[in-house]
């Protein structure tokens, strides 16, 4: 039934510290292997730097830092997911990215009020899929949080 399919969310699944996250494929423009990252001084701590993405200078965010997780060394499976939002192209460093799946809309539940101690405005919802638990990300809040806003007002 095409109507039902339309309500499915096609999402890219990536791994971060044993948890699985999902971003809608419509916001993803590519997945890249790690390459040299040029550090940009005096930016938010989770901004890893910029890379040369086929001639375009693209900022890279370390999602581990952004989510307050412990830093980990880059491995062979470490990837940069290039996301596109509001005319911005940004890369997210994740432990691994491996899957594209359809998430039926009815499987998505709103984010629980309290998930641990972290303030989690960047979580859009949680999807239960058989034995997997996927965290749906709200990219907008991943990229622009209070910290970034504060940073901008100080410098602007």
């Amino acid at each position: 039934m095409p109507q039902d399919n339309k309500q499915d969310i096609k999402a890219i699944i990536f791994q971060l510290n044993d948890e699985e996250f999902a971003i809608s494929v419509q916001q993803v423009s590519g997945i890249e292997r790690m390459q040299h990252i040029t550090r940009v001084p005096q930016t938010a701590s989770f901004v890893k730097g910029v890379i040369n993405l086929r001639g375009v200078v693209t900022p890279i965010i370390d999602l581990r830092k952004r989510f307050g997780l412990d830093a980990a060394d880059f491995t062979d499976s470490t990837r940069m997911i290039i996301v596109y939002m509001d005319e911005m192209e940004v890369g997210l460093i994740v432990d691994a990215a491996y899957d594209v799946i359809d998430i039926p809309e009815e499987a998505v539940e709103p984010a629980p009020e309290v998930v641990g101690a972290v303030d989690v405005d960047y979580i859009e919802g949680v999807a239960k899929l058989e034995d997997r638990l996927l965290i749906l990300l709200n990219l907008n809040n991943v990229l622009t949080d209070e910290e970034v806003r504060a940073l901008k007002t100080v410098e602007g």
Binding site: H36, T38, V40, P41, Q42, T43, V47, G49, V50, I51, N52, G55, V56, V57, T58, P59, D86, E87, M88, E89, V90, L143, K152, E155, G156
Partner: peptide, 25 residues
């Protein structure tokens, strides 16, 4: 340009891509 995400970086006006493909500020 550094793109729309990194605006107003102190003392950096932009970036360039060097011969070895790396970005220099």
């Amino acid at each position: 340009s550094l793109g729309n995400y990194l605006t107003d970086v102190f003392a950096i006006s932009g970036a360039t891509i060097l011969g070895d493909g790396q970005v220099a500020l």
